[in-house]
Design a protein around this nucleic acid. Structure first.
Length: 466
RNA sequence: UCCCCGGUAGCUCAGUCGGUAGAGCAAGUGACUGUUAAUCACUGGGUCCGUGGUUCGAGUCCGCGCCGGGGAGCCA
Protein backbone atom coordinates (compact mmCIF):
# COMPACT_ATOMS: atom_id res chain seq x y z
CA UNK A 1 0.00 0.00 0.00
CA UNK A 2 1.54 3.27 -1.09
CA UNK A 3 1.76 6.15 1.36
CA UNK A 4 0.69 9.60 0.17
CA UNK A 5 1.21 13.04 1.64
CA UNK A 6 -2.11 14.53 2.65
CA UNK A 7 -1.50 17.44 0.28
CA UNK A 8 -1.33 14.94 -2.59
CA UNK A 9 -4.49 13.20 -1.47
CA UNK A 10 -6.42 16.46 -1.23
CA UNK A 11 -4.79 17.73 -4.41
CA UNK A 12 -6.43 15.05 -6.53
CA UNK A 13 -3.36 12.90 -7.04
CA UNK A 14 -5.16 9.91 -5.58
CA UNK A 15 -8.31 8.98 -7.53
CA UNK A 16 -11.59 8.40 -5.73
CA UNK A 17 -12.07 4.75 -4.88
CA UNK A 18 -8.34 4.10 -4.59
CA UNK A 19 -6.89 2.66 -1.40
CA UNK A 20 -4.10 4.63 0.15
CA UNK A 21 -2.24 5.23 3.39
CA UNK A 22 -1.61 8.52 5.15
CA UNK A 23 0.52 9.18 8.20
CA UNK A 24 0.34 12.15 10.51
CA UNK A 25 -0.92 13.62 13.75
CA UNK A 26 -4.47 13.93 15.05
CA UNK A 27 -5.93 17.41 15.34
CA UNK A 28 -9.43 16.58 16.58
CA UNK A 29 -11.76 13.65 17.01
CA UNK A 30 -15.56 13.82 16.93
CA UNK A 31 -17.70 10.77 17.61
CA UNK A 32 -21.06 10.05 16.05
CA UNK A 33 -23.69 7.68 17.31
CA UNK A 34 -24.20 6.76 13.67
CA UNK A 35 -21.39 4.31 14.32
CA UNK A 36 -18.32 6.25 13.30
CA UNK A 37 -15.82 8.85 14.39
CA UNK A 38 -14.34 11.75 12.50
CA UNK A 39 -10.61 12.11 12.96
CA UNK A 40 -8.84 15.02 11.31
CA UNK A 41 -5.22 14.25 10.56
CA UNK A 42 -2.46 16.62 9.45
CA UNK A 43 1.02 15.78 8.22
CA UNK A 44 2.31 19.24 7.40
CA UNK A 45 2.43 18.63 3.66
CA UNK A 46 -0.07 21.42 3.16
CA UNK A 47 -2.37 23.59 5.19
CA UNK A 48 -5.49 21.44 5.01
CA UNK A 49 -5.86 18.36 7.18
CA UNK A 50 -7.57 15.20 5.96
CA UNK A 51 -10.80 13.97 7.50
CA UNK A 52 -10.63 10.29 8.31
CA UNK A 53 -13.83 8.33 8.81
CA UNK A 54 -13.31 5.69 11.47
CA UNK A 55 -16.18 3.15 11.41
CA UNK A 56 -17.11 1.52 14.73
CA UNK A 57 -16.33 -1.85 13.13
CA UNK A 58 -12.59 -1.20 13.31
CA UNK A 59 -11.11 -3.81 15.67
CA UNK A 60 -9.41 -1.17 17.78
CA UNK A 61 -12.34 1.29 17.67
CA UNK A 62 -13.35 1.12 21.33
CA UNK A 63 -9.90 0.39 22.61
CA UNK A 64 -7.92 3.03 20.71
CA UNK A 65 -9.83 5.16 18.20
CA UNK A 66 -12.27 6.47 20.80
CA UNK A 67 -9.30 7.62 22.86
CA UNK A 68 -7.46 9.46 20.12
CA UNK A 69 -6.72 13.03 21.12
CA UNK A 70 -4.83 15.95 19.67
CA UNK A 71 -1.22 15.08 18.99
CA UNK A 72 -1.53 11.31 18.60
CA UNK A 73 0.51 9.97 15.70
CA UNK A 74 -1.44 7.63 13.42
CA UNK A 75 -1.09 5.65 10.22
CA UNK A 76 -4.39 5.23 8.38
CA UNK A 77 -5.14 2.96 5.45
CA UNK A 78 -8.45 3.13 3.66
CA UNK A 79 -10.42 4.06 0.61
CA UNK A 80 -10.56 7.64 -0.62
CA UNK A 81 -14.24 8.55 -1.02
CA UNK A 82 -16.33 11.60 -1.78
CA UNK A 83 -17.40 13.18 1.48
CA UNK A 84 -20.96 12.68 2.60
CA UNK A 85 -20.71 15.79 4.72
CA UNK A 86 -20.07 19.46 4.07
CA UNK A 87 -16.73 21.12 4.55
CA UNK A 88 -14.48 18.82 2.56
CA UNK A 89 -14.57 17.25 -0.87
CA UNK A 90 -12.97 13.93 -0.03
CA UNK A 91 -12.28 11.88 3.04
CA UNK A 92 -10.52 8.67 3.87
CA UNK A 93 -12.75 5.80 4.96
CA UNK A 94 -10.44 3.93 7.28
CA UNK A 95 -9.97 0.18 7.08
CA UNK A 96 -7.10 0.28 9.51
CA UNK A 97 -5.93 2.87 12.00
CA UNK A 98 -2.62 2.24 13.64
CA UNK A 99 -1.62 4.36 16.63
CA UNK A 100 2.05 4.92 15.99
CA UNK A 101 2.61 7.17 18.99
CA UNK A 102 0.11 8.08 21.67
CA UNK A 103 -0.14 11.13 23.89
CA UNK A 104 0.67 10.16 27.46
CA UNK A 105 -1.52 12.77 29.13
CA UNK A 106 -4.12 14.54 26.96
CA UNK A 107 -4.85 17.11 29.65
CA UNK A 108 -1.34 18.46 29.68
CA UNK A 109 -0.51 18.08 25.99
CA UNK A 110 0.61 21.64 25.29
CA UNK A 111 -1.16 22.03 21.94
CA UNK A 112 -4.84 21.75 22.77
CA UNK A 113 -7.38 22.06 19.96
CA UNK A 114 -8.08 25.65 20.88
CA UNK A 115 -6.69 29.11 20.30
CA UNK A 116 -3.29 29.72 21.87
CA UNK A 117 -1.39 32.96 22.19
CA UNK A 118 1.86 33.21 20.25
CA UNK A 119 3.62 34.14 23.49
CA UNK A 120 2.58 30.82 24.97
CA UNK A 121 3.50 28.86 21.84
CA UNK A 122 7.04 30.25 22.07
CA UNK A 123 7.38 28.43 25.37
CA UNK A 124 6.65 25.16 23.57
CA UNK A 125 8.66 25.87 20.45
CA UNK A 126 9.30 22.14 19.95
CA UNK A 127 5.59 21.44 19.58
CA UNK A 128 4.28 24.64 18.04
CA UNK A 129 4.98 23.58 14.43
CA UNK A 130 1.96 21.31 14.87
CA UNK A 131 -0.32 24.35 14.97
CA UNK A 132 -1.98 25.82 11.91
CA UNK A 133 -0.14 29.11 12.25
CA UNK A 134 3.40 27.93 12.82
CA UNK A 135 3.04 25.12 10.31
CA UNK A 136 1.92 27.63 7.71
CA UNK A 137 4.84 29.90 8.58
CA UNK A 138 7.27 27.03 8.05
CA UNK A 139 5.88 26.34 4.58
CA UNK A 140 5.93 30.04 3.69
CA UNK A 141 9.55 30.28 4.82
CA UNK A 142 10.47 27.35 2.61
CA UNK A 143 8.58 28.76 -0.35
CA UNK A 144 10.24 32.16 -0.05
CA UNK A 145 13.70 30.62 0.40
CA UNK A 146 13.21 28.54 -2.73
CA UNK A 147 11.88 31.54 -4.63
CA UNK A 148 14.90 33.61 -3.60
CA UNK A 149 17.38 31.01 -4.79
CA UNK A 150 15.41 30.55 -8.00
CA UNK A 151 15.25 34.30 -8.63
CA UNK A 152 19.00 34.71 -8.41
CA UNK A 153 19.81 31.51 -10.26
CA UNK A 154 17.63 32.55 -13.19
CA UNK A 155 19.46 35.88 -13.38
CA UNK A 156 22.94 34.39 -13.36
CA UNK A 157 23.75 35.03 -9.70
CA UNK A 158 25.90 32.49 -7.86
CA UNK A 159 25.17 31.51 -4.29
CA UNK A 160 28.35 32.05 -2.27
CA UNK A 161 28.70 30.32 1.09
CA UNK A 162 30.42 33.01 3.10
CA UNK A 163 31.89 32.07 6.47
CA UNK A 164 29.98 32.07 9.72
CA UNK A 165 33.11 32.61 11.77
CA UNK A 166 34.85 35.90 11.11
CA UNK A 167 37.95 37.60 12.38
CA UNK A 168 36.85 41.12 11.59
CA UNK A 169 34.36 43.13 13.54
CA UNK A 170 34.27 45.36 10.50
CA UNK A 171 31.16 47.12 9.45
CA UNK A 172 30.36 48.15 12.97
CA UNK A 173 27.04 46.50 12.24
CA UNK A 174 26.45 45.65 15.83
CA UNK A 175 27.78 43.77 18.81
CA UNK A 176 29.45 40.45 18.14
CA UNK A 177 29.27 37.00 19.67
CA UNK A 178 32.73 35.79 20.51
CA UNK A 179 33.90 32.40 19.23
CA UNK A 180 36.53 30.93 21.48
CA UNK A 181 37.82 27.69 22.94
CA UNK A 182 39.78 29.42 25.68
CA UNK A 183 39.14 28.55 29.29
CA UNK A 184 36.82 31.33 30.38
CA UNK A 185 37.62 30.86 34.03
CA UNK A 186 41.38 30.96 33.64
CA UNK A 187 42.31 32.33 30.21
CA UNK A 188 45.94 32.65 29.06
CA UNK A 189 47.36 36.12 29.61
CA UNK A 190 49.86 38.25 27.76
CA UNK A 191 52.75 39.76 29.74
CA UNK A 192 50.66 42.95 29.88
CA UNK A 193 47.84 41.04 31.54
CA UNK A 194 45.22 41.09 28.79
CA UNK A 195 43.75 37.88 27.43
CA UNK A 196 46.12 36.21 24.98
CA UNK A 197 43.96 35.41 21.98
CA UNK A 198 47.08 34.24 20.18
CA UNK A 199 46.54 31.01 22.07
CA UNK A 200 42.91 30.75 21.01
CA UNK A 201 41.72 28.24 18.40
CA UNK A 202 42.35 30.49 15.41
CA UNK A 203 45.35 32.23 16.90
CA UNK A 204 43.39 35.47 17.10
CA UNK A 205 40.07 36.89 18.20
CA UNK A 206 37.11 35.53 16.25
CA UNK A 207 33.39 36.13 16.20
CA UNK A 208 30.15 35.00 14.59
CA UNK A 209 29.49 36.98 11.45
CA UNK A 210 27.23 40.01 11.44
CA UNK A 211 27.12 40.07 7.64
CA UNK A 212 28.51 38.14 4.72
CA UNK A 213 28.84 41.31 2.69
CA UNK A 214 32.55 42.00 2.91
CA UNK A 215 33.40 38.43 2.02
CA UNK A 216 30.89 38.26 -0.79
CA UNK A 217 32.33 41.44 -2.31
CA UNK A 218 35.49 39.47 -3.02
CA UNK A 219 33.51 36.93 -5.01
CA UNK A 220 31.52 39.69 -6.66
CA UNK A 221 34.75 41.09 -8.08
CA UNK A 222 35.40 37.73 -9.72
CA UNK A 223 32.05 36.16 -10.55
CA UNK A 224 30.21 39.45 -11.19
CA UNK A 225 26.83 38.47 -9.79
CA UNK A 226 26.70 36.72 -6.43
CA UNK A 227 24.66 36.49 -3.26
CA UNK A 228 24.77 35.01 0.20
CA UNK A 229 21.84 33.49 2.05
CA UNK A 230 22.49 32.26 5.52
CA UNK A 231 22.37 32.92 9.23
CA UNK A 232 23.68 36.10 10.79
CA UNK A 233 24.39 36.86 14.43
CA UNK A 234 24.13 40.06 16.40
CA UNK A 235 24.66 40.30 20.12
CA UNK A 236 22.64 43.48 20.47
CA UNK A 237 20.46 43.68 23.55
CA UNK A 238 17.48 44.34 21.31
CA UNK A 239 14.06 43.50 22.62
CA UNK A 240 11.58 44.25 19.89
CA UNK A 241 9.25 42.39 17.57
CA UNK A 242 11.68 43.02 14.70
CA UNK A 243 14.99 41.78 16.14
CA UNK A 244 16.61 38.40 16.67
CA UNK A 245 20.11 37.54 17.84
CA UNK A 246 20.24 34.89 15.10
CA UNK A 247 18.46 35.65 11.87
CA UNK A 248 18.73 34.93 8.17
CA UNK A 249 19.74 37.45 5.58
CA UNK A 250 19.95 37.53 1.79
CA UNK A 251 22.80 39.65 0.46
CA UNK A 252 23.21 40.05 -3.31
CA UNK A 253 26.22 41.88 -4.67
CA UNK A 254 26.44 42.99 -8.31
CA UNK A 255 29.56 44.13 -10.15
CA UNK A 256 29.37 47.05 -12.55
CA UNK A 257 26.12 48.12 -10.88
CA UNK A 258 25.19 51.46 -9.39
CA UNK A 259 22.66 52.39 -6.74
CA UNK A 260 19.74 52.54 -9.16
CA UNK A 261 20.45 49.09 -10.54
CA UNK A 262 20.66 47.95 -6.94
CA UNK A 263 17.25 49.39 -6.13
CA UNK A 264 15.83 47.83 -9.30
CA UNK A 265 17.17 44.46 -8.21
CA UNK A 266 15.66 44.83 -4.74
CA UNK A 267 12.29 45.73 -6.19
CA UNK A 268 12.18 42.88 -8.67
CA UNK A 269 13.39 40.41 -6.04
CA UNK A 270 10.58 41.29 -3.67
CA UNK A 271 7.95 41.25 -6.39
CA UNK A 272 9.19 37.94 -7.72
CA UNK A 273 9.13 36.12 -4.41
CA UNK A 274 5.75 37.61 -3.44
CA UNK A 275 4.33 36.36 -6.76
CA UNK A 276 5.77 32.91 -6.11
CA UNK A 277 4.29 32.88 -2.64
CA UNK A 278 0.79 33.76 -3.84
CA UNK A 279 1.04 31.14 -6.59
CA UNK A 280 2.52 28.32 -4.55
CA UNK A 281 1.11 28.74 -1.04
CA UNK A 282 -2.42 29.93 -1.66
CA UNK A 283 -3.60 27.58 1.08
CA UNK A 284 -1.41 29.06 3.79
CA UNK A 285 -1.94 32.63 2.61
CA UNK A 286 -5.70 32.13 2.74
CA UNK A 287 -5.28 31.12 6.36
CA UNK A 288 -3.19 34.19 7.19
CA UNK A 289 -5.76 36.38 5.48
CA UNK A 290 -8.55 34.77 7.47
CA UNK A 291 -7.00 34.59 10.92
CA UNK A 292 -3.92 36.80 11.16
CA UNK A 293 -4.08 39.75 8.78
CA UNK A 294 -7.10 40.30 6.54
CA UNK A 295 -5.18 42.46 4.10
CA UNK A 296 -2.07 40.33 3.58
CA UNK A 297 -3.02 38.93 0.17
CA UNK A 298 -4.30 42.15 -1.35
CA UNK A 299 -1.28 43.96 0.06
CA UNK A 300 1.07 41.64 -1.81
CA UNK A 301 -0.95 41.89 -5.00
CA UNK A 302 -0.79 45.65 -4.80
CA UNK A 303 2.94 45.62 -4.14
CA UNK A 304 3.51 43.33 -7.11
CA UNK A 305 1.58 45.63 -9.44
CA UNK A 306 2.83 49.07 -8.53
CA UNK A 307 6.33 50.50 -8.90
CA UNK A 308 8.14 51.21 -5.65
CA UNK A 309 8.15 54.88 -4.74
CA UNK A 310 11.71 56.24 -4.58
CA UNK A 311 12.76 59.25 -2.59
CA UNK A 312 16.04 60.92 -1.85
CA UNK A 313 16.77 61.29 1.84
CA UNK A 314 16.75 65.06 1.33
CA UNK A 315 13.28 64.92 -0.25
CA UNK A 316 12.07 62.75 2.61
CA UNK A 317 13.29 65.33 5.12
CA UNK A 318 11.32 68.03 3.29
CA UNK A 319 8.21 65.86 3.31
CA UNK A 320 8.60 65.19 7.04
CA UNK A 321 9.18 68.87 7.79
CA UNK A 322 6.04 69.77 5.86
CA UNK A 323 4.01 66.91 7.32
CA UNK A 324 0.86 68.12 8.98
CA UNK A 325 1.72 66.23 12.08
CA UNK A 326 3.95 66.55 15.11
CA UNK A 327 6.71 64.04 15.76
CA UNK A 328 8.14 63.21 19.12
CA UNK A 329 11.57 63.78 17.61
CA UNK A 330 11.65 66.82 15.30
CA UNK A 331 13.51 66.04 12.11
CA UNK A 332 16.07 68.01 10.19
CA UNK A 333 18.65 67.31 7.50
CA UNK A 334 21.55 65.24 8.81
CA UNK A 335 19.58 63.31 11.38
CA UNK A 336 18.86 59.63 11.16
CA UNK A 337 15.19 58.83 10.69
CA UNK A 338 13.37 57.59 13.77
CA UNK A 339 10.80 54.81 13.65
CA UNK A 340 7.99 57.34 13.71
CA UNK A 341 9.43 59.05 10.63
CA UNK A 342 9.87 55.82 8.72
CA UNK A 343 6.35 54.85 9.72
CA UNK A 344 4.93 58.13 8.48
CA UNK A 345 6.69 57.81 5.14
CA UNK A 346 5.87 54.15 4.51
CA UNK A 347 2.42 54.02 6.06
CA UNK A 348 0.91 57.46 5.57
CA UNK A 349 2.80 59.17 2.78
CA UNK A 350 3.24 56.15 0.47
CA UNK A 351 1.21 53.32 2.03
CA UNK A 352 3.48 50.76 0.43
CA UNK A 353 7.14 49.92 -0.08
CA UNK A 354 9.40 52.93 -0.29
CA UNK A 355 13.03 53.21 -1.34
CA UNK A 356 14.95 55.93 0.46
CA UNK A 357 18.29 56.84 -1.12
CA UNK A 358 21.37 59.00 -0.67
CA UNK A 359 21.74 59.51 3.06
CA UNK A 360 24.18 61.84 4.83
CA UNK A 361 27.52 60.06 5.09
CA UNK A 362 27.72 60.67 8.83
CA UNK A 363 24.87 58.28 9.60
CA UNK A 364 25.97 55.44 7.29
CA UNK A 365 28.74 52.85 7.10
CA UNK A 366 32.30 53.40 5.89
CA UNK A 367 32.00 51.21 2.80
CA UNK A 368 29.19 53.19 1.17
CA UNK A 369 30.15 55.16 -1.92
CA UNK A 370 30.59 58.88 -1.46
CA UNK A 371 28.38 60.91 -3.80
CA UNK A 372 29.68 63.82 -5.84
CA UNK A 373 28.12 66.31 -3.41
CA UNK A 374 30.68 65.15 -0.85
CA UNK A 375 28.15 64.95 1.94
CA UNK A 376 25.88 62.05 1.04
CA UNK A 377 26.54 58.39 0.26
CA UNK A 378 24.87 56.07 -2.23
CA UNK A 379 22.88 54.20 0.42
CA UNK A 380 19.38 52.87 0.16
CA UNK A 381 16.81 51.49 2.56
CA UNK A 382 13.59 49.80 1.56
CA UNK A 383 10.87 50.54 4.10
CA UNK A 384 7.57 48.73 4.29
CA UNK A 385 4.47 49.53 6.37
CA UNK A 386 4.34 47.79 9.71
CA UNK A 387 7.94 46.56 9.71
CA UNK A 388 10.09 49.51 8.79
CA UNK A 389 13.44 48.68 7.23
CA UNK A 390 13.31 45.39 5.36
CA UNK A 391 16.32 46.05 3.14
CA UNK A 392 19.45 48.08 3.72
CA UNK A 393 22.06 48.46 1.01
CA UNK A 394 24.37 50.69 -0.95
CA UNK A 395 26.70 51.16 -3.84
CA UNK A 396 30.13 50.35 -2.42
CA UNK A 397 33.07 52.69 -2.38
CA UNK A 398 35.32 51.28 -5.08
CA UNK A 399 37.94 54.11 -5.03
CA UNK A 400 40.81 53.21 -2.72
CA UNK A 401 41.77 56.77 -1.83
CA UNK A 402 38.19 57.68 -0.95
CA UNK A 403 37.76 54.52 1.09
CA UNK A 404 41.00 55.19 2.94
CA UNK A 405 39.90 58.73 3.68
CA UNK A 406 36.67 57.41 5.18
CA UNK A 407 38.51 54.84 7.29
CA UNK A 408 40.72 57.64 8.52
CA UNK A 409 37.80 59.92 9.36
CA UNK A 410 36.21 57.19 11.39
CA UNK A 411 39.44 56.29 13.13
CA UNK A 412 39.33 52.73 11.82
CA UNK A 413 42.37 50.50 11.50
CA UNK A 414 43.40 50.31 7.84
CA UNK A 415 45.53 47.24 8.40
CA UNK A 416 42.55 45.26 9.59
CA UNK A 417 40.95 45.79 6.18
CA UNK A 418 43.96 44.86 4.10
CA UNK A 419 42.19 42.26 1.99
CA UNK A 420 39.11 44.44 1.58
CA UNK A 421 41.39 47.27 0.41
CA UNK A 422 43.13 44.85 -1.97
CA UNK A 423 39.86 44.52 -3.83
CA UNK A 424 40.18 48.27 -4.56
CA UNK A 425 43.80 47.94 -5.62
CA UNK A 426 43.40 45.13 -8.12
CA UNK A 427 40.77 45.62 -10.80
CA UNK A 428 38.28 47.53 -8.72
CA UNK A 429 34.91 48.20 -10.34
CA UNK A 430 31.71 49.92 -9.23
CA UNK A 431 29.50 47.44 -7.43
CA UNK A 432 26.45 47.47 -5.22
CA UNK A 433 24.45 45.21 -2.97
CA UNK A 434 21.98 45.01 -0.13
CA UNK A 435 20.80 42.89 2.77
CA UNK A 436 17.25 41.60 2.90
CA UNK A 437 16.07 40.54 6.35
CA UNK A 438 14.47 37.16 5.78
CA UNK A 439 12.39 37.05 8.96
CA UNK A 440 11.17 40.59 8.40
CA UNK A 441 10.10 39.51 4.95
CA UNK A 442 8.21 36.51 6.29
CA UNK A 443 6.65 38.74 8.90
CA UNK A 444 5.59 41.27 6.28
CA UNK A 445 3.97 38.77 3.93
CA UNK A 446 2.12 36.78 6.59
CA UNK A 447 1.10 39.59 8.91
CA UNK A 448 2.69 37.70 11.81
CA UNK A 449 3.81 40.75 13.71
CA UNK A 450 6.72 39.30 15.70
CA UNK A 451 9.79 37.84 14.00
CA UNK A 452 10.08 35.39 16.91
CA UNK A 453 7.08 33.59 15.45
CA UNK A 454 8.44 33.23 11.92
CA UNK A 455 11.74 31.47 12.75
CA UNK A 456 11.65 27.90 14.09
CA UNK A 457 13.61 28.43 17.29
CA UNK A 458 14.06 32.13 18.05
CA UNK A 459 17.19 33.36 19.79
CA UNK A 460 16.75 36.61 21.68
CA UNK A 461 18.40 38.13 24.73
CA UNK A 462 18.07 35.72 27.69
CA UNK A 463 16.26 33.20 25.52
CA UNK A 464 17.71 30.15 23.75
CA UNK A 465 15.67 27.42 25.37
CA UNK A 466 15.14 24.92 22.60
C1' U B 1 19.71 49.31 27.91
C1' C B 2 15.36 52.86 28.86
C1' C B 3 9.80 53.76 29.44
C1' C B 4 4.96 51.53 30.16
C1' C B 5 1.92 47.08 31.12
C1' G B 6 1.50 42.18 32.90
C1' G B 7 2.50 37.07 35.71
C1' U B 8 -4.16 33.53 39.17
C1' A B 9 -6.50 25.96 36.70
C1' G B 10 -3.39 22.59 30.84
C1' C B 11 -4.61 27.52 27.88
C1' U B 12 -7.13 32.65 27.76
C1' C B 13 -8.64 35.64 31.53
C1' A B 14 -12.03 37.83 35.80
C1' G B 15 -11.23 38.44 41.00
C1' U B 16 -14.85 44.75 43.92
C1' C B 17 -13.04 47.82 50.02
C1' G B 18 -7.35 43.29 52.38
C1' G B 19 -11.36 38.41 54.92
C1' U B 20 -8.08 31.20 52.22
C1' A B 21 -10.38 31.70 44.52
C1' G B 22 -14.18 31.87 39.62
C1' A B 23 -15.61 31.77 34.16
C1' G B 24 -14.76 30.25 29.11
C1' C B 25 -11.95 26.88 26.33
C1' A B 26 -9.18 22.26 26.85
C1' A B 27 -9.39 17.32 29.50
C1' G B 28 -12.50 13.03 31.70
C1' U B 29 -17.56 10.69 31.91
C1' G B 30 -22.39 10.52 29.82
C1' A B 31 -26.41 12.18 26.33
C1' C B 32 -27.21 13.51 21.30
C1' U B 33 -25.61 14.06 16.41
C1' G B 34 -22.39 12.76 8.84
C1' U B 35 -19.61 15.68 12.53
C1' U B 36 -16.23 19.67 11.26
C1' A B 37 -14.32 26.28 16.46
C1' A B 38 -20.26 20.69 17.10
C1' U B 39 -24.22 21.02 21.07
C1' C B 40 -26.04 19.76 26.22
C1' A B 41 -25.16 17.82 31.32
C1' C B 42 -21.89 16.35 35.07
C1' U B 43 -16.76 15.66 37.07
C1' G B 44 -11.69 16.33 38.20
C1' G B 45 -8.09 20.11 38.11
C1' G B 46 -4.73 25.88 42.01
C1' U B 47 3.06 26.54 45.11
C1' C B 48 -2.38 32.99 42.89
C1' C B 49 5.96 33.85 39.50
C1' G B 50 9.78 33.94 43.68
C1' U B 51 11.35 36.36 48.04
C1' G B 52 11.18 39.76 52.13
C1' G B 53 7.87 43.13 54.66
C1' U B 54 3.09 45.65 56.58
C1' U B 55 -1.33 43.37 58.93
C1' C B 56 -5.21 39.59 63.46
C1' G B 57 -5.50 38.24 58.22
C1' A B 58 -2.34 39.37 51.56
C1' G B 59 -4.11 36.84 44.90
C1' U B 60 -5.12 42.01 46.55
C1' C B 61 -0.77 46.87 49.81
C1' C B 62 4.93 47.95 49.87
C1' G B 63 10.44 46.61 48.66
C1' C B 64 13.71 43.49 45.85
C1' G B 65 14.41 39.72 42.15
C1' C B 66 12.97 36.62 37.90
C1' C B 67 10.07 36.00 33.51
C1' G B 68 6.80 37.80 29.52
C1' G B 69 4.44 41.63 26.34
C1' G B 70 4.15 46.59 23.94
C1' G B 71 7.02 50.87 22.67
C1' A B 72 12.03 53.33 22.12
C1' G B 73 17.16 52.88 20.82
C1' C B 74 20.26 49.63 17.66
C1' C B 75 19.35 47.33 12.95
C1' A B 76 17.88 43.38 8.78
Amino acid sequence: MSVHPIAAVLGGQVPLGRRTTVQGWVRTRRDSKAGLSFVTVHDGSGFEPLQVIAPAELPNYRGEVLHLTAGCAVRVTGELVASAGKGQGVELRAEKIEVVGGVEDPETYPIAPKAHSFEYLRTVAHLRPRTNSIGAVARVRHCLAQAINRFFHERGYFWIHTPIITASDCEGAGALFRVSTLDLVNPPRTPEGSIDFGQDFFGRETFLTVSGQLNVEAYCLALSKVYTFGPTFRAENSNTSRHLAEFWMVEPETAFADLHANADLAESLLKSIFRALLDERADDMAFFAQRIDKTCIQRLEQVIQSPFKRLDYSEAICILERANRSFEFPISWGMDLQSEHERYLAEDYVDGPLVLMNYPKEIKSFYMRLNDDGRTVAAMDVLVPGIGEIIGGSQREERLEVLDARLGELGMNKAAYHWYRDLRRYGSVPHAGFGLGFERTVSYVTGMNNVRDVIPFPRTPRSADH
